[in-house]
Design a protein around this nucleic acid. Sequence first.
RNA 1: GGCCCGUUGGUCAAGCGGUUAAGACGCAGCCCUCUCAAGGCUGAGUGAUGGGUUCGAUUCCCGUACGGGUCACCA
Length: 549
Amino acid sequence: MDYKYLANLIFPDAKPISYYEEKYPERNLKEGAMVTRYAPSPTGYMHIGGLYQSIIGRKLAEQTGGVFLLRIEDTDQKRQIENGVREIVESVKDFDIKFDEGMINETEEIGNYGPYKQSLRKEIYQSYAKYLIEQGRAYPCFCTPEELEEMREKQEKAKIRTGYYGVWAKYRNYPLDDVIEKIKNGEKYIIRFKSMGNEEKKIKHYDVIKGNIDFPENDQDIIIIKADGLPTYHFAHAIDDHLMRVTHVIRSDEWVSSVPLHIDLFKTLGFKIPKYAHTAPIMKEEDGKKRKISKRKDPEAAVSYYHKEGIPSQAVTEYLLNIANSNFENWRKANPDKNISEFNFELNKMSVSGAIFDLVKLLDVSKNVISKYSKEKIYDEVFLWAQRYDEELTEMLEDKEYALKVFGIERGGVKPRKDISKWSDVKNNIYYMFKDKFEKNEIYEFDKITDKEEISKILTLYIEKYYNENDNKQEWFDKIKELSGVLGYAKEVKEYKLNPESYKGHVGDVSTVIRVALTGRKNTPDLYEIMQVLGKDEIINRINKCINR
RNA sequence: GGCCCGUUGGUCAAGCGGUUAAGACGCAGCCCUCUCAAGGCUGAGUGAUGGGUUCGAUUCCCGUACGGGUCACCA
C-alpha cells in the first residue's frame, strides 16, 4: 500500500497531469505580453469593483498585445444564481470591454484554454489532486465540520493560532492502511494539501501594486477538494491560472493574505508563480468612516445604477480609470479627443489604499464626456435611455428633426455647452422647447422686473418694433439694446454699474423678461439660438400668451 | 486577538531627502459687451502622532494612535 494506490483509489479515472500540460501549452506571445483575467463568481448583479478589475485587465492585455479572458468561478454551488453568467457578460459588454477568451453566454465560450467555467473543469482539478496525493503532498481528511469547529474553539481558548496545521492536522500522518480502510468503508472525506511550510520562516513577496510584503510561510493544510468533488478557490486559482497561462493575477486586495498559501501551492505543483497585483477596493464614506462599497447598502455599487441614471459608460470608465491611474486626468486634458485605448496604463501607479467613490466627480467627468458628443450621438443615446426609463421623454423625442435642433443649441462649436451630466437631466433641460409641454406652464420665473405692466410694455414693444426673425445674432442683440435704451434701461451692463441711479435697469434685465416669456425660466442657454429653434410663430405665440396671462 | 497593509487639504491625488507641497472635483469671490452651464483669474483649505538618522525630512528608520484586509468544505 502506497500513495499511488491511495491516489488510484480516490481518483481512479483521472488523467495524468502531463495530458493537460500538453493540451494547454505556453502561449506563443511576444515578450512582455500580459495574459490577464477577470474571474467573477456568478452570484448576483455586477459590482462596480468587478468593472474596475475588468477595465484594468482589458487595458493591460490590450496595450501589451496579450490576452484577456473571462473565467467563471462557480465552485460554490450554493451561491449560484440563475443567469449569473449572462448578467456578467452583458454588464461588461455595456462598458465596451471585450474578452479574447472565455464564456460568451451561459453555456458557450471561445478560446483554446477552456473550459472557462470552473464547474466544467472538475476532472482537471482532480488530476492535479491525484498527482499531489501520489507525491504524498495531499491527503484525505475525515474530520467533520463539527470536529473542526471544536478544534478551533480549543485553539482560541488556548490563544494559539487557529487552523489545520502541524500537530492539529489530525489526518496528515494518519497510517495509510487505516486511511484506505476508511475510504473503503465509505467514510466521508475531503482532500487537503500537505504543506511543508514553516510559520517561523518569512517569505518575501513582491506585489506589483503593493510593493514588497513579507509574510510568514504558509503551513496550513488547506482543503483543496471539497466534499462535492469541486476545488476550493485556492486550488482552482493555482490550476487555472497556470493552465490558462495567466501572467498577471489582478484581483482585489482581500486576497493578499492568501498569497503565502498560493505561493506554496504553485511551488508544490511545480508551476511558475504569476505576478500578483492586488487592487485596493473602492470605498464609501459613512459616518466619517471608510468602508468597502457594498452591494447591499449602496445602490451605486451596482453597475446597473449608472445605466438607470443615464451616466454614459464612457464616463464611468474614465472615472474609474482616473481612480486607477490618477495621471489619466492630465492625459485626458492634454488629449481631449484621443481614444482611451491610447492611454498607457501602469499597474504600479495604482494607489495602495482604497479611494472613496465620489459621485460628484463622476458627474463632472461625465459632463465633459457628454460635451464632446455630437447632437446626433446625444440624440441616439438619450433616445435609447428614454425608451428604457422615461416614456414622456421618448414621446418628446419622436420628432427627431426637431429634437436634433434642440440638442444642437450651443453644441458642435469649439465651446460646447456643458449642462448635461446624465441623461436623466435632459428632460428638465429641454422641456420648455416643446410646445405642448410649454403650454402647460403657468409659472414665469421673473427676476428683477416683475411689474406686469412693465413686462407687457417690454414684450409688446419688442414684438411689434424690434423682433425680426431674419436678424443675425449681432443684429438681434443690438435691437434688444436699443429697446432697452428706449425704455430707460442701460444698453451696457458696465454703464449701468457705473451709474445705477440713472437707469431702471440694464439690457440683461430686459432680455431676462423676453427669456422668461419665451421659456418660463430666467436661466437658459443662449436665447438667440433658442429663438432660432422655436421659430417665429411660436415666439409670437408665447409672447402673447405671456402678455395676456 | 494573530498576521499583513495603509495614513498628504472635504474628496481623488502628484512629488519620494533641500519645492512658495502640483493638478482635478467641490467651495468662495471676481472677470467675461443678456441669464445660466461653461471658460478665465484669484482665494480659503493639506503630509495622523511621538521619537530618532541627517546640515536638512512630507520623503528614510522605530514606537503610538487611527483606519483597512484576513484568519470557512465562500469566493
